[in-house]
Amino acid sequence: MKNLIPYFTLGYPDNTRLCRFLDIIPVEKINYIEFGFPSIDPRYDGPVIRKTHSVGNINFSGEVYSKYFDYFSRNHVKMYSLSYYSDIKDRFDEFIGYLQMNKFSGIIIPDLIIDYFNDSRKVIEKLNDMGFEYIPFFSPATPDSIIKSIASITNSWIYYGLQPSTGIEIPYELDYTTERINTLLPGREITYGFGIKTDDDIKNLMKNGGSGVAIGTYLVKMIDAGDEKGFIDYIEKMRGVLDE
């Protein structure tokens, strides 16, 4: 099954409204889910996701979501945390312990190899030792040698951001982009994110060997509008596109 990964920033727009969406997710249609732990400085996100972090910081309460973490885990939906290293570096062990306790499978750290490159190998090896997946986050700006070296010390799927930040639409060459990452990491599971919204986007990525897609910014407007039906329809439609 191709990966369909909905993204939610915890605490946005508030705990009650977000929980309504978590309640209705058709778990049989998704295999992974990504939770953004609100960041003080979500520097590599676009304005829409930045806003969710800023609101999430005010509202987030771990207790509210523990039953959802348990629910997704029991339904075999693998959970991944999106966390900035700048937020967790001073309480890293404690935070990873919290995620493991709540049955998360791994973590995506968008700023690790950009802002903390010298620490990155040590952090990844530590996660490996803890039996916790580190999901390499690459973008078009990641040099070839770094893609290869970071991928070589991990076994998980790869998160490839197609745009400089979330929700951005800069023109890019899809065929060349996918060919490059497939050539650098043959056989590796590549899930694409950033700026993906239409079924055509997804079809083209899958046609070029993609293993899945992560969708965040596009879901925010449904959450903002409380459009629960639209959300379910969208997830089901995207599942269909991925299964084609």
Partner: peptide
């Protein structure tokens, strides 16, 4: 592609709009 480290992406200059877009 030949840099020794990833090039830090551009950042929006304002909070609520995307200067990148």
């Amino acid at each position: 592609p030949d840099l020794p480290e990833p090039l830090a992406p551009p950042r929006d200059s304002k909070q609520d709009v995307s200067s990148i877009n």
